[in-house]
Design a protein around this nucleic acid. Structure first.
Lengths: 408, 408
DNA sequence: ACTATTCGTCATCGCGATGAACAAATTAGT
DNA sequence: ACTAATTTGTTCATCGCGATGACGAATAGT
């Protein structure tokens, strides 16, 4: 289960603090500082973390032996004094493998510790209704190729995470229901080619990719409390709270698609009336736009038609935006996020969806301060899920370096 | 600010782990075990926490010197072996002072470390529109009386928390807006009679009281992930996530009252259309019931008329329940709580509100498992806020014993 | 060359948990 | 009643790990 167990039920079952725990925590602290702030000397790390230079030194020895950090050698800083020895995350050794199964494709990628995508691979594959074991076999072959190439780069993935468009029980490692693939109650093996394998919802992984994106760009610091909306199979929202994915008590948080928008609206397959999906879901938008359903890459098609100036398509998207905005207004009133990010496939339709969403949010979020800029489209778009899947393993190593292998 | 700072913005600004931090954590671990599981011998604590008996011994010495735990003396256990020396939370020394200002009353109470209410006081006081400093002066007098009585019981409150019906910025210690009192942008002094003073929303405190209620009764274990709905001034929902109050990025989470229920519904004073308050708020319910507004204790009045069998009142409450259920269905779909608790004044109307709410939730929460029993009325009712206010200080001491005084 | 800095490492110290040993207090068995 | 077996709580030696302070190394400024 990536990132966070869903309710550790641990009322007060905390572990006692031992000196080994202390060391573990400080290893993570040092590695986290190196991961977050590019090249850093030991002294920089000490200043930033509050640890002593001496302590940082011994911690770095451990991290270096584990192959997690490497030195670039002394770099003239321009200032007086002995120059520091720059530390960076190792671009060899531990890595993360992300896998993705979509309706029409399989994909995988390998990222190194610094989050850089080092390998990527994508193959067309009509998976709709195909037996799951065949799909998984193809996916295994793709993963094997990636692992071979990774070995040539001296990268050694420590875990694999699979992104699935559908409802997933991450803790149990099962796909509860993926309508577009025709999967239901599918238990995935705990290992793939010797790597521990986790499953996760595409929407959640897209949110994590957004959370962990390189903050270096001019986009400002990545928010740690946000709602990430994405539509792939149904409409899902991932809640990120304090930099952690929030799964809810039973792991089913984020079902934005079934938030009631018009309580007396049309019947939804879920059994309720007027769910958001009835206004902003695939079928609803295609119907409103006058397009046939199940038409291949419907998102790309909509984007193309809208760009061409099709009035019905634009109106359909505007109405979807209104519904999304209404549902999100409720969500914002409830959880008060720092930002709302439109991700996944819908990010590509942002140009047509965002104005109506912004208007709706501005009109309905009135009790607290709310700026239009707090709603934006993800720059990652559909690539987010795969990237997020690969990053899960890497982040897990960085946040708990002694957990991987026998570092401690 | 009680309980949890609202977004520590701490991307990776964690403190380094020192051996003093280790001690602090283990003190909290031991004290937490004693607080949670009644009388416990040192050996029991060791077994339960995973610490060594030796370690527990020295930790208990520190806690005893700080006046946080006391010994009951050896108690025959019936089993073979030397009997353990039972440890309990001290019923003297550190305590918590809770204060409450309502539209028609002032109240205060003192709880000891074990959460027991030792002193309670309530005075009628028409506070609507009265100058805030006069109200606070009266409240100070009430607090002074309680502190004098507390001293006779050898209880020494370590902090005071004030429950206010309205929007509060707990971190800044200000009441942003309390419509029913006529307060706006009121900065409260940081101290009251020498005690550090915090302010908090009534709804949030009611939720915390629910969270911290004695689990011993047959009501089963208190949930750690739940939504606590209460209506006092407006309709508020407090989200408790993993046993902590969730405040949102800016501290405004839980505005259930302005979640859109019927997007094209009547205009709300907040500027939006069809907010929940337009269907389940004080004015809406009274109007639907055919009663004059601003009629003293309107909740009690509604409960009385409903119990007498008044059809219009019952129908008004049923419709409010439908609206509440619709809004809550959205909330449940989003955050997947373990339970939903109806608290505050509305708890007294539970008999008339719950059936419609349950029906609505059952119909609209379909993707995940949902049982009707997950929605219930709080047993604390309106007393929750005051109790929660007093418990905040006590819980803070228990969760961080070295923070209070110079324990460490 | 000399001084002022800054960086990284080493020896020493203190704190706090661990583990083993031991006295005290009880029950079970004869 | 006396012994054996347990369980509790404390004491003592030990270990791990960060803090502290000192020292060599490497740079800039004069």
């Amino acid at each position: 289960m990536p990132s966070q167990s869903h309710s550790p039920t641990g009322g007060q079952q905390r572990r006692p603090a031992s000196q080994q725990g202390m060391r573990r925590q400080n290893l993570a602290l040092v590695l986290g500082a190196v991961a977050a702030h590019a090249p850093l000397s030991r002294a920089d790390v000490a200043a930033r973390t509050g640890l002593t230079r001496a302590a940082v030194s011994t911690l770095v020895v451990t991290l270096h032996e584990a192959g997690l950090v490497s030195e670039l050698g002394p770099a003239p800083s321009g200032r007086v004094g002995r120059p520091g020895n720059a530390l960076v995350l190792s671009n060899e050794g531990p890595a993360g493998l992300g896998l993705e199964v979509g309706v029409e494709h399989l994909a995988g990628c390998v990222v190194d510790l610094s989050g850089e995508v080092r390998l990527q691979r994508r193959t067309a594959s009509p998976n709709r209704g195909r037996p799951a074991d065949q799909v998984l076999a193809d996916l295994g072959a793709l993963a094997a190729e990636l692992l071979a190439e990774a070995e040539a780069l001296k990268l050694r993935p420590a875990g694999a995470v699979l992104a699935v468009p559908g409802l997933v029980d991450a803790a149990a490692g099962t796909v509860v229901h993926a309508a577009n693939l025709g999967w239901r109650e599918l238990h995935l093996p705990p290992e793939l080619l010797g790597l521990p394998l986790s499953v996760e919802n595409e929407a959640n992984l897209g949110a994590l990719a957004e959370l962990w994106r390189e903050g270096g760009e001019a986009e400002g610091p990545a928010p740690v409390d946000f709602v990430h909306v994405s539509a792939e199979a149904g409409i899902g929202a991932a809640l990120v709270v304090g930099g952690r994915l929030f799964r809810g008590a039973r792991g089913f948080a984020g079902e934005l698609g079934h938030v009631p928008v018009h309580p007396e609206g049309p019947l939804c397959p879920c059994g309720a009336h007027g769910c958001l999906e009835q206004y902003a879901g695939e079928r609803a938008v295609l119907a409103a736009a006058g397009l046939p359903e199940a038409s291949g890459d419907w998102v790309a098609l909509l984007a193309k038609r809208a760009a061409e100036g099709s009035a019905p398509v634009r109106e359909a998207l505007r109405q979807a935006g209104v519904a999304l905005g209404t549902a999100l207004a409720g969500a914002v009133n409830l959880v008060d996020p720092e930002a709302v990010v439109l991700g996944g496939a819908y990010a590509e339709l942002g140009e047509w969806l965002l104005p109506a969403m912004r208007a709706e949010l501005a009109a309905r979020v009135t009790v607290r301060p709310w700026e239009a800029g707090a709603l934006s489209a993800s720059g990652l778009g559909r690539a987010g899920a795969l990237l997020g899947a690969a990053l899960v393993t890497v982040r897990r190593i960085i946040e708990n370096p002694s957990g991987a292998y026998g570092v401690g």
